[in-house]
């Protein structure tokens, strides 16, 4: 008898929704926080482009499109996975991982999908609006094929971020106290917000190399945006998708490995 994962997922989401509705004020404040941050970034872009017409070859509409794409990626990741990765450390430290382990369903599934953060979803329509506005402003020709590839790559980027943060979160099995996830996510998000071309010179180049090949966070927004409004090469896209698949497989191996060392905080 296989567990019915789709029904478990629906029940998880329903419970999260019920919880959000209990704390309405908190929810509204968070939505304002999320959306307000976007306006700060828009002001920042306006300031830059009042001094110059291009940043490392990116025009203002292209840059705006990148920002919209980045919002789509981060909003999806934060809605689906951030809280789930974040709470792993808590589950380990308090020993509540026990309850996940005794359930007759895939442990990674339960850990990955139990929570959904509806407030982070607020940036999704804002991101879509920004991309649309930028596309009209720039007069980009966008084909149906490109759009499909765009959606696929956003999904791939989100999976990639998930696999990396999930593995990072698992280190709490050994470290017990592990609160570095916030910082890691902040770095990943800050780095991937800008065109990859700005990372040049010695420091920038090193950062570029690390963030493309070692911890591939840089391309999660850059690649889909490039596909839509600039140029791209097919091998790079294939490599990107393969890398995401490898990271997902690694995350599963890492979980099995971590659980062998799990000590279960005493009760």
């Amino acid at each position: 008898m296989r567990p019915r994962y789709s029904r478990i997922l629906l029940r998880f989401w329903k419970n999260c929704l019920l919880r959000e509705m209990t704390f309405r004020g908190h929810f509204i404040l968070r939505v304002f926080g999320e959306v307000g941050w976007v306006f700060l970034l828009l002001v920042f872009i306006e300031v830059i482009f009042s001094k110059t017409s291009h940043v490392r070859g990116w025009s203002e509409p292209q840059y705006l499109f990148l920002m919209g794409t980045h919002m789509l990626v981060t909003s999806l990741f934060e809605t689906l996975f951030f809280e789930n990765c974040w709470r792993i450390s808590d589950l380990v430290r308090k020993g509540d991982l026990d309850f996940v382990l005794v359930k007759p369903a895939n442990t990674q599934f339960l850990l990955t999908f139990e929570r959904i953060d509806f407030a982070s979803l607020a940036n999704l329509p804002v991101g879509i609006a920004l991309c649309t506005y930028a596309a009209i402003q720039g007069g980009f020709t966008i084909t149906f094929g490109h759009s499909v590839l765009f959606v696929l790559l956003i999904g791939t980027g989100v999976c990639m971020l998930y696999a990396m943060l999930f593995m990072f979160a698992l280190t709490s099995v050994w470290l017990i106290r592990q609160t570095g996830l916030d910082a890691l996510w902040f770095y990943a998000m800050s780095l991937s917000r800008y065109p990859a071309e700005i990372y040049r010179g010695f420091a920038g180049g090193t950062l570029w190399f690390v963030c493309v090949f070692v911890v591939p966070v840089l391309m999660v927004a850059n690649l889909p945006a490039n596909v839509m409004v600039r140029t791209f090469t097919t091998p790079f896209i294939i490599n990107f998708i393969v890398a995401a698949a490898v990271l997902l497989i690694l995350s599963n191996i890492a979980l099995r490995w971590a659980l062998r060392s799990y000590r279960s905080a005493s009760s």
Partner: peptide, 16 residues
């Protein structure tokens, strides 16, 4: 933060 019944319904799905 939820009534116990909601957790029970979740168990119903997990344990099929």
């Amino acid at each position: 933060d939820l009534p116990a019944n909601e957790s029970f319904r979740l168990h119903k799905e997990i344990y099929h």
